[in-house]
């Protein structure tokens, strides 16, 4: 037996780990979580904590039941829980939040083989699941506790106002997030802080959210021929949250840059189609979920090009 370790090269590795990436995403989500709590009150915090704890617990129990390695320390369950929580409205019934989180972790993530094996983003799939199941309590938005007094009935969001008519909040309100919506989606400022952090830490490629949001903006600019209207579409609803944190999900988006950009464009196109022509006021979740499913096909069309490679 040799006293020395013998292994295949390389013998040095970068310091970056999966855990660190997940932790970075959690850190990037914190401004949105804080903003959501300030805007919608302590109930928002309870929803977030519930989702995170449920995510950790359900993954832990799944690991125990299936006698597999306990994987909750890699922070990926925290990301899923937090992200789902931020996608719910503050007054969602707690049991629905718990149900959604269990669905995300157990059905979408663990049953497909755990981290890295899921075909759809767990938080997105769970949000769609809840949206379809409990349209009354999951869709629409809670009433903010701070900000300007608006004649918003509970459940109305700027997007549904655009669709059905009514008074719209100002662009400044939209940027700061003091209007009805899900906990984490309203405050664009907080999401931008998270975005910048992720770009600086090189966790995400800034082109993906840029192409996604840019596509939505340009398409509404063309269809409404008003840049104010297009700006409203960008700032309202889950677009920024979805574009920064969900369309950039590694597992469920293509691996090459060209693939990622096609994915982002597709998300933008579908979001536009649903918002402009569909029944739902919000299209981000459906758009990303749909593109998640298309990812294997996009990967077939966007293979990396080998240097000097000969095509048969």
């Amino acid at each position: 037996m040799s006293q020395f370790a013998v292994s295949s090269s390389p013998h040095i590795r970068s310091e970056l780990t999966t855990k660190r990436i997940m932790l970075d995403v959690v850190i990037a989500l914190l401004p949105a979580a804080v903003a959501g709590t300030v805007i919608f009150g302590y109930r928002a915090l309870i929803v977030l904590i519930t989702c995170v704890c449920t995510a950790l617990l359900s993954e832990y129990l799944f690991n125990l039941v299936t006698k597999s390695e306990v994987t909750i320390t890699d922070f990926s369950a925290v990301v899923t829980g937090l992200l789902l929580g931020l996608n719910l409205r503050a007054d969602v019934p707690i049991w629905q939040a718990v149900l959604g989180t269990v669905f995300a972790i157990v059905v979408v993530k663990c049953l497909f083989g755990g981290l890295g094996c899921n075909f759809a983003n767990p938080a997105i799939a769970a949000r769609v699941f809840l949206l379809v199941s409990f349209a009354g309590t999951v869709g629409g938005g809670a009433v903010p506790i701070v900000g300007e007094e608006l004649e918003l009935v509970s459940g109305a969001t700027p997007l549904s106002v655009i669709k059905n008519g009514g008074a719209l909040p100002s662009l400044k309100t939209l940027f700061l997030g003091t209007y009805g919506g899900a906990i984490g989606e309203t405050c664009t400022l907080a999401l931008l802080i998270g975005f910048i952090y992720l770009v600086i830490r090189r966790v995400i490629n800034p082109l993906v959210p840029a192409v996604y949001i840019g596509t939505v903006f340009v398409l509404f600019l063309i269809s409404d021929s008003s840049y104010i209207s297009a700006l409203y579409q960008v700032l309202c609803g889950g677009l920024v949250l979805g574009a920064v944190f969900m369309a950039t999900d590694y597992v469920t988006s293509p691996i090459t840059l060209s693939g990622k950009l096609i994915f982002a464009f597709g998300c933008g196109l579908i979001t536009f189609l649903i918002r402009a022509f569909g029944n739902y006021p919000e299209g981000v979740s459906f758009a990303i979920l749909f593109m998640n499913i298309l990812t294997p096909f996009i990967e077939k069309w966007t293979k990396s090009v080998p240097l000097g490679g000969r095509v048969k």
Binding site: A5, T18, L115, G116, Y250, I255, K260, S304
Partner: peptide, 29 residues
């Protein structure tokens, strides 16, 4: 390498991040 540096890191599941693809000098996947 000292003992600390010689420890083989534990492999965790691929998260499909694409860093290997973008870093490959030959453009492989």
């Amino acid at each position: 390498f000292d003992k600390k540096e010689s420890v083989k890191p534990k492999a965790t599941p691929c998260i499909h991040c694409g860093r290997c693809v973008s870093t490959c000098p030959m453009g492989l996947n």
